[in-house]
């Protein structure tokens, strides 16, 4: 079963009299365990597509499924539940709750899922170790570098063993070296935990890390290349 399918999804924004087609009948299928980059210039619709796949926004047409579940048939409560258990999010910046430590930020997801205290701590620490932050459990976001904050965000997305992790320009605020190592780490997690990753970027260097690159332009997918 495919991790994600999007069929003919479209999103049209109306600003006054002007209609902006952010996404025009886009279809995309991502298999479980894939590591997919969404590429394209600014305004091409990457964020819009990721938001639709993540169930944060509803399409004006078409259908999205995650692990075979169709969003259109789900209530908003179901959708929130699905986001909590099946989908991990990493945003460009300000991902973390500023008053919580790295460990607490990761454990917060587990708490929302009703996982017990001891297990929360174990799992949060294990995943933080995985992303290379074994000595940063007790740091608040403000005491971490941008790259470290993004690693915590990836750890938080990973900790609940979701079907997919959606990352919208996770490296945009990082220098290229830090960005590279974050991508490297995401790739490792992809292989180690068999989690599907879909991330957007407009950085050609970052794209190199991906096996599959989906290119977008003006709300359309213009290329879909898989490296051998």
């Amino acid at each position: 079963m495919s991790a994600v399918t999007a069929r003919d999804v479209s999103k049209i924004y109306t600003q006054g009299d002007v209609k902006v087609t952010a996404l025009g009948k886009v279809s995309l299928t991502v298999e479980t365990g894939e590591f997919v980059a969404l590429a394209g210039p600014s305004g091409s619709g990457k964020t819009t597509l990721l938001n639709l796949i993540g169930g944060l926004d509803t399409p004006d047409g078409g259908e999205v499924t995650v692990n075979g579940m169709a969003f259109s048939t789900m209530s908003s409560g179901d959708l929130a539940e699905l986001r909590l258990t099946q989908i991990g999010f990493v945003f460009q910046s300000y991902n973390l709750i500023p008053v919580l430590t790295a460990e607490e930020n990761v454990a917060y997801i587990l708490r929302l899922q009703g996982v017990g205290k001891k297990e929360r701590q174990e799992r949060a620490r294990a995943i933080l170790n995985d992303v290379g932050l074994e000595d940063k459990y007790d740091r608040k976001p403000s005491q971490l570098s941008g790259g470290q904050q993004q690693r915590v965000a990836v750890a938080r997305a990973l900790v609940s063993n979701p079907a997919i992790i959606l990352a919208d320009e996770p490296t945009a605020n990082l220098d290229s070296k830090t960005g590279d190592s974050l991508l490297q780490m995401m790739r490792e997690m992809n292989q180690k935990h068999h989690v599907t990753f879909i991330f957007s970027t407009h950085d050609a260097m970052v794209m190199e890390a991906a096996k599959r690159i989906v290119s977008m332009k003006d709300g359309q997918i213009v290329a879909d290349k898989t490296k051998c």
């Binding site: 986001r83 909590l84 999010f89 945003f91 300000y94 709750i97 997801i109 929302l112 938080r156």
Partner: peptide, 16 residues
């Protein structure tokens, strides 16, 4: 507001 957005995105209910 942004933080609430992120928290809701990752599954926090508005009620909470």
């Amino acid at each position: 507001t942004r933080e609430f957005g992120v928290m809701m995105a990752i599954g926090t209910t508005p009620r909470r």
